[in-house]
Design a protein around this nucleic acid. Structure first.
Lengths: 350, 350
DNA sequence: ATGAAAGCGCTAACAG
DNA sequence: CTGTTAGCGCTTTCAT
């Protein structure tokens, strides 16, 4: 059997042949085994319709026999389509973004795109640095989940020409495409909800990130419009946790024992608040209403069941994936701003 | 100014020049601006020590001026080092693996490696298919978190020659490297712990995955050795959630109201059990002891604080990262099986 | 310390 | 339907 590198270096002495790499099965090997040209192998893999049935069979058999795994790095270099999508989250901990990442990964995977995961932390510097590193991979799309953007980051992203999807937020001036909801409006509606339940002494426990602040603003605006006193706010450092929820709620209650309605910036925080109520024997929702944010999987089965704001995480992920794929395949995305809204799920805690 | 593609196609008419790509800044452009050769640019980026200080300065300025972002795809193709690590999890939901992924991503990121995220689901077919797709990216390492492996998958992985780290488990026959702990022993120790607290009527609520079964086996073995009756087991489908914990625990208790010690296969399940106890006014730990697994962030702040098994997630992630990096840089890993152990954290719930 | 040549493995573009 | 040629952007190897 002829050496498979013979086409490149037919006169090379046997000892100099680079046969070191174990999985160096390439299109050449498959082509030789199948008795076709390399481009036919390439087509059989990426575009089977363009190859006749018998040829396809032979190529497929050759692939199976050689154990060929197409090198997407090489293909991506030439075709300028990496089939890679960079997803940037502040943190995986906290559970807020995992569901979006999960559905994004799944939706992209169905189209042979893979997700490059980046954790930026909650700082701008972290995001910028990460973005730079990720850009080097020439992803076919970038999905930013709930991050703040520096001017430099925006510029760089814009200059790259890579489709960008911002998520978890809504602005009239997205970098490119965006799918999310208005945090300000959400906060407003939650306060309205509490007011409609007769609550008048409102409070907030939330993270200190940008989106939380927007929700808080909306909340306070509704409170003002409703004629009740200005809500008391207790901020904790993002990411939010059950523990911080307990501590934050406790601090809030110690300062303002008369509170009768508290909006928590995440379900984890709300769960912490519920725990604190349990410990202090404060009946919920009789003495105080607790509202969460996120409707994560434990919210409905808590005791009392948590009233919270439902976000369609899955739809965020799927929409972002669709945005990227559409653009990567050359289609134009006409509706680049998608408001997926939210809904207040009224359960036992409020 | 001369067109930057002139070196390739000096006589090409202006209209045919492929100037479409906006971010098509390459080493050539930087080299021209800096007045050096392309290889010098390459070295300035990846190996600054091999370039003289003044040259380095000029190159760096040229990079800044052109906005050059090295194409890692191209570099990876030539150097055969993708600086990509594939991480495979069954699911991100459930929160069990997110912490490992988080620390893995961070530890790898510090060495300019990026994580390619794959979700295999809880089936073998899903894992095999995903593995194949991931292999095409020629990752420098593969981290398998808590998955079951098909024979075919093992073979393929072995044939690829790519460093593989299995995590979250321990076996004497790893594919390559492994960092985890013995689930069987852990289950045994938890039962022992409960027995030492005087509990005699034991039960289990757990997921139906492999590792959970191992823990359950160990648990039952310890129970048998302790001379108490065989533990009652209630399985729920993985991934585990708070809701399934409530339901599973309720079902278990309905069938066996005399239980006085329950081991839950995850903290989420345990939290569900605690909720159910709260609803049924069953005092914990007076009437029944609840032990979780994982010591996730809410465990300590629940009421009562959850007795659980602490796993050093972070160390799993960091060890896996170190394994991969060592191997990728050509170092030999002598200790390829790392047992990170676990510890039972005794809190209020047991 | 710097450069020239070669080519990683694949696919776009154009034949036939 | 199939093949030929060229080259993606970088780094290896070898030279200077």
């Amino acid at each position: 059997m002829r050496d498979r590198f013979s086409c490149h270096a037919p006169t090379l002495p046997a000892t100099k042949q680079p046969r070191s790499k174990s999985l160096a099965v390439t299109v050449h090997d498959v082509a030789r085994v199948a008795g076709v040209s390399i481009i036919t192998v390439s087509r059989a893999v990426t575009n089977p319709d363009r190859v006749s049935a018998p040829t396809l069979d032979r190529v497929r058999e050759a692939i199976a026999r050689t154990g060929y795994v197409p090198n997407l790095i090489a293909g991506g270099l030439r075709s300028r389509r990496s089939k890679l999508v960079a997803a940037v989250v502040p943190s995986l901990t906290g559970g807020v973004f995992t569901e979006t990442i999960e559905s994004l990964t799944l939706a992209l995977g169905a189209h042979d795109y893979h997700v490059l995961l980046g954790q930026a932390g909650f700082t701008q510097a972290g995001e910028d640095k990460l973005l730079d590193a990720l850009l080097g991979r020439r992803p076919d799309g970038i999905v930013l989940t709930g991050v703040m953007h520096s001017h430099e980051g925006r510029t760089r992203l814009l200059a790259s020409g890579i489709p960008v999807v911002e998520t978890w937020d809504l602005t009239s001036t997205p970098i490119d495409m965006i799918v999310g909801f208005s945090h300000e409006r959400l906060g407003f509606d939650v306060a309205d909800f509490l007011l409609s339940r007769g609550r008048k002494k409102l409070g907030i426990v939330s993270g200190d990130d940008d989106r939380a602040r927007q929700r808080n603003e909306g909340f306070c605006r509704a409170a003002a419009r409703g004629g009740v006193r200005t809500p008391q706010i207790e901020l904790v450092h993002s990411p939010t946790t059950h523990e911080k929820g307990r501590a934050g709620f406790a601090a809030l209650l110690d300062k303002h024992p008369d509170l009768d309605g508290v909006f928590c910036g995440s379900d984890a925080l709300a769960m912490g608040a519920l725990t604190e109520c349990l410990v202090r024997s404060i009946p919920v929702p009789e003495d105080i209403s607790i509202v969460g944010h996120g409707d994560v999987n434990f919210a409905a089965s808590l005791h009392p069941p948590l009233t919270t704001v439902r976000i369609d995480y899955d739809r965020i992920g799927r929409t972002a994936a669709q945005f990227i794929i559409d653009r990567a395949e050359g289609r134009t995305v006409d509706n680049r701003i998608v408001d997926i809204g939210y809904s207040i799920v009224s359960r036992g805690s409020a």
